[in-house]
């Protein structure tokens, strides 16, 4: 996710942001996605920092199951009342599941970004793809800087 294509009044993220959750066991991207390995697949969502910066999520556009994405390719969009932010694939792979509950309850992205607010699951094309991602300490430095 990137700081969205804000329309009109854009969201301005405070420079020194404190108090966001960065779970130790997850992997992260500089675009504020998290990645959780689970067997042969990985689960993907946006971070606490990202959901807070975005504001109230009112719509989530998710990919279709079976779609193949390149690393950094567009997976979907997360929309607040004010802005649209693209979600990028943290790793190359095939979409194997999407969180259908977000179609009627997108606010779960705000309420539980690492839990019920997950976005989709990918089968990575490369077995060691996660090694290129940030660990929690590195991501924490990114959002604290």
């Amino acid at each position: 996710m990137v700081g969205g294509r804000a329309r009109g009044t854009g969201v301005r993220v405070p420079l020194a942001f404190t108090g966001v959750q960065v779970p130790e066991e997850l992997h992260y991207t500089a675009e504020h996605e998290w990645v959780a390995p689970s067997g042969q697949t990985v689960r993907v969502g946006i971070t606490d920092y990202a959901q807070d910066a975005l504001g109230d999520v009112v719509y989530v556009d998710l990919p279709a199951v079976g779609v193949e994405v390149a690393a950094g390719g567009v997976l979907g969009e997360v929309e607040s009342t004010k802005s649209v932010s693209e979600i990028y694939a943290p790793v190359a792979g095939t979409v194997v599941a999407v969180n259908e509950a977000l179609s009627t309850a997108p606010e779960q992205v705000n309420g539980d970004p690492y839990g019920s607010g997950w976005l989709c699951e990918l089968a990575p094309a490369e077995p060691d793809a996660l090694q290129s991602l940030l660990d929690a300490a590195a991501y924490r430095r990114l959002v604290d800087s």
Binding site: T9, R12, G55, V58, S80, T81, K82, E107, N110
Partner: peptide
Amino acid sequence: PLSYPTGTVV
């Protein structure tokens, strides 16, 4: 203020 911690929808 764009919003307070309550959020725009609330």
